[in-house]
Every structure is written in C-alpha cells, then in structure tokens.
Amino acid sequence: MNVSEDELEQRLRALFADERLGVQPGASAEEAIVAGARRRRRRRHVVLSASGVTMAAVLVVGGFAVVKIRSSDSSTVMAATSPELSTQPPAPATSGPPSAVSAGPTSHPQQPPPSGPPPGHAENPPHTTGGRGATTTPSKPQTSKVTTGPLLTASGIGALKLGMTEAQLTAQGMTVSNKKSADSCTYFDVKGGGLPTSVNAAVSQSNGVVAVTPAAAAHTPEGIGAGSSKEDVITSYPAATEGSDGLVAPAGQVSNYHFTLTQAGEVAGVYLYSVYQDC
C-alpha cells in the first residue's frame, strides 16, 4: 500500500503526541539532578586546585633554578675579581626548602691576614754595609783617645821600671831627691836618666819600686789619660772597680792602674802601683 508523504507525517505526529509514549519524572528526580550538579561542581574545584598546585610547584622549581644560577654567577664574578676569594673552594650546593634559598647568597668567610712579617722579610734585619751580603755586628763604643803627655805602661815609665832599687835608679843616670822615709819604704823624686818627666816613686826595701806617680799628666797605651770619662775607663778596662779615690784597673800580671776622678767624672791623673806594694 502506497502512503503519501503527507499521510506519513500526520501519522508520525499523532504517534509522538500520544501520552502513552511520555516518561513521567519520579518524585526524587529533582534531588538527584541537584546532587549530580553539586558533584560536578566539586570535581571542577578539585581539578582547578590540582592545576594551581602543579603550576605553583613549577614556578617554585623555576625560581630555585634561577636563584641557583644567579648565585653561581655571582660567586664566579667574586672569584674572578678577588684573588683572596679565588683560593676558597666553592660552597657546595645544598638542597632545601625554597625559603632557605630566598634568604640570599651565602657569604664566603675571609681568612685572617697572616701574622708576623711577610715571607722573605726579616723582623730585625742586620745592618748591611758595603757589597751584597756583607753584615756588620755592633762594636764597642769608641772612646776618645788621649795621646798627649808621657806614656805610662804596665811595667813603668821610660827607663824607670817597677821593682828597681834606688841603686839601680842612680846607676841608670837618674837623680834622686827629696827623700822621705816611712816604715819600710822610701819616697823620693826621680828625674833625668831617660825619664820623659819627673816622677815621685815609692821604693820598698823588699820589693823595690812599688808605686810610680808622674808629675805631668800621663796616658796609658789604651789612650786613657787626663780628661777621659769614667765610661771611657770602664770601656777600655772592663774589669775596673771602684776605689777610694777613683777607679782601679788591672794593668798587667803584677801591676794596676789607679785613675783619680774629678767631681765631673773625668780622669784627673793616672798612677801605677805594684800588686806587691807594702808601703
């Protein structure tokens, strides 16, 4: 049977309009729809939160990498510009929370300067004179030498020697005068016979001449005489000791020099005494 298109359309319309084909919603359909909408909304929030956390993690990791690169660059620049820091080993990279990185780059501790003098530099270098490597050691203070007047040696003056008797003096052509005796000694003036100046001598009966006192200001072979300072005497004769009227210094094995001093501490006279003096 042939059915026209219009008739077919009318039948379909009538079929779809039949109430028996409609589906009536249940009593709880509205609550189910609302609950489903809420579930979809929560899923959307969860997805958005997870996406935000993932993005934050990506940003933190990227920032950590940037800070680390900048810290390495700054350490490299500091090592290149400071020879002192260049000797320090680079600080090891430490892993930790982002807050530790954001505190700023760590500072490199500086080594304290070395104590004492720099290498090759002596703290108290010796005094050098002359050519390279020549050194000088401190010498004794130079004394002012006295060379004027007669020379008084450890054995006597001129031809007059310690231990000579009065007969030996006259046998040498010396003239004896102004004799004075006291106890076992004789005191007199002696001149001539090879003497550079007149001398007052003390002659012991057992030891001969035991004391010589020149009339003129004499000096010793070491250059100590009238005008020399007390320090000059001690420098020339380190073994000198204080005496009753000045300083006493060893002259030889059997004699001593006696230096009388002025109130200013200068030598006024030089005399020779035997260690066997008994006058």
Rank of each mutant, 00 (worst) to 15 (best):
E166L: 15
T197S: 13
A239P: 07
V275F: 00
E166N: 14
G225L: 11
S95W: 15
A93L: 01
A201G: 07
K179V: 00
A56D: 05
A251W: 06
Q88C: 06
S144A: 13
P112Q: 02
K161T: 09
G208A: 10
Q110Y: 03
G26V: 03
G62N: 10
K68W: 12
P98Y: 15
P89W: 07
K140R: 11
D73M: 03
S177I: 01
T94Y: 05
T81R: 07
V209Y: 05
T137L: 15
E231M: 04
P250Q: 11
A29F: 15
S86W: 02
R38G: 07
A211G: 12
A240Q: 06
E31T: 05
R40G: 05
P119I: 02
K180R: 04
R43F: 11
S74F: 05
S206T: 05
Y237C: 15
E31V: 15
V176K: 10
Q142F: 06
P89I: 05
A91G: 09
T76Q: 03
H121S: 13
T81Y: 05
V3F: 06
C279D: 07
A27E: 15
P90W: 04
T220P: 01
R42C: 00
A57K: 00
K179T: 00
A14D: 14
T175L: 10
T260P: 07
V254C: 03
L152M: 11
A249S: 11
E5M: 10
T241K: 13
R11I: 08
A202P: 01
E9H: 08
D245W: 08
D189H: 12
A79N: 06
G120Y: 08
P221S: 11
R11A: 15
S255I: 08
S99D: 07
L195C: 13
G104T: 10
S244R: 01
A14F: 14
A50C: 12
L48G: 11
S229H: 08
S4E: 04
G243S: 14
T235M: 01
H258D: 02
A14Q: 14
P89C: 02
G133V: 01
S244Q: 07
V212Y: 02
K68D: 13
Y276T: 02
H258Y: 12
G62L: 13
C185R: 00
L151Y: 05
H121D: 10
P138D: 07
R38I: 06
G156V: 01
G133A: 03
K230M: 08
S139A: 15
L152H: 13
Q205L: 14
